[in-house]
Computed example of a mutant assay.
Amino acid sequence: MRVAVITLVAGRHRHLRLQRDGLAAGTRQPDHYLVVTMADPDAGKALDGRRPAAETVDVPVGPGGRLPLAAARNAGAARALADGADLLVFLDVDCVPGPGLLARYAETAADGALLCGTVAHLPPPPPEGYRLGELPGLAPPHPGRPAPGDGEVLRGGDHRLFWSLSFALTAATWRDLGGFCEDYTGYGGEDTDFARTAAARGVGLWWIGGAPAHHQYHPVSRPPVEHLDDILRNGALFRDRWGTWPMEGWLRDFADLGLVVHEPGTDTWRRTPETR
């Protein structure tokens, strides 16, 4: 089985370098390592002289500077498949794979399944940065997701819990799903849509023990007010496609801040007049 690792990059080169160090320390090396850049011409320089060897794939950013996350994942997958990949492993640029991640994904892979390993969110690093060997002791897996034991596979997972930080699927399953919907641009919604498509087509969600990833710290806003317009636009697209709104927790938080209002008659969330 030929394994491709695909990660999207728009900055955070220090995080990217540690991800690559994690791959190099793994019990199984990727056959392809594809770094998909979005308005980040310097990403390739951040990887010079490091192993495993990486190939960069450039994806243009559209109007308004919104990152084309769905299109970028599709571009990375297309290149991997053209190079003969049998298994696609997607890692967020902030995620450092544990030493057994690729091996576990490869040995548990099956057509008709989305594979998700555990993800632990790390505390802020010390001034000298994270030490690769110390990552497992810094944080437990995220409490909002299942955390199977090292040799365990939990089948029949809830597709609403899927996230794109760390997941894998076979080439045949990717082709069956058709990739991510590229109508989504900017922040939010495209991974929820992908999981909904998987559920609709009978592709199961499996939680894989022994495939941990460690998410490097970066500041976040709660709720993510800087992404308000993206969430409203992508949320409306999701509603049009599936009949319900995603990210409702954030929408309610925005409403509590007086930023948005829900119109029940049309099931529409909009900016309040004073914030338009």
Rank of each mutant, 00 (worst) to 15 (best):
E134L: 13
L135E: 09
P136T: 08
A139D: 10
P140Q: 07
H142D: 15
H142I: 00
G144E: 07
R145T: 08
A147L: 02
A147W: 00
P148C: 07
P148N: 03
D150E: 15
G151I: 01
G151H: 03
E152R: 04
L154I: 14
L154R: 14
R155I: 03
G156H: 06
G157V: 13
D158H: 08
H159P: 11
L161G: 03
L161M: 11
F162C: 09
L165S: 12
S166A: 15
S166W: 01
A168S: 12
T170E: 01
T170W: 00
A172M: 04
T173I: 04
T173P: 06
W174A: 08
G178V: 10
G179K: 02
G179N: 06
G179Q: 06
F180L: 11
C181D: 15
D183L: 11
D183Q: 13
G186V: 09
G186R: 04
Y187N: 08
Y187W: 15
G189H: 03
G189W: 01
E190M: 05
D193T: 03
T197M: 12
T197D: 14
T197C: 14
R201I: 09
R201L: 15
G202I: 10
V203E: 09
L205F: 07
L205S: 06
L205T: 04
W206L: 13
W207C: 12
G210V: 13
G210K: 09
P212K: 06
H214I: 01
H215T: 08
H215E: 14
H218K: 11
V220Y: 04
R222W: 07
P223C: 10
P224K: 14
E226C: 02
D230P: 05
D230A: 05
R233L: 10
R233S: 12
N234E: 00
N234A: 00
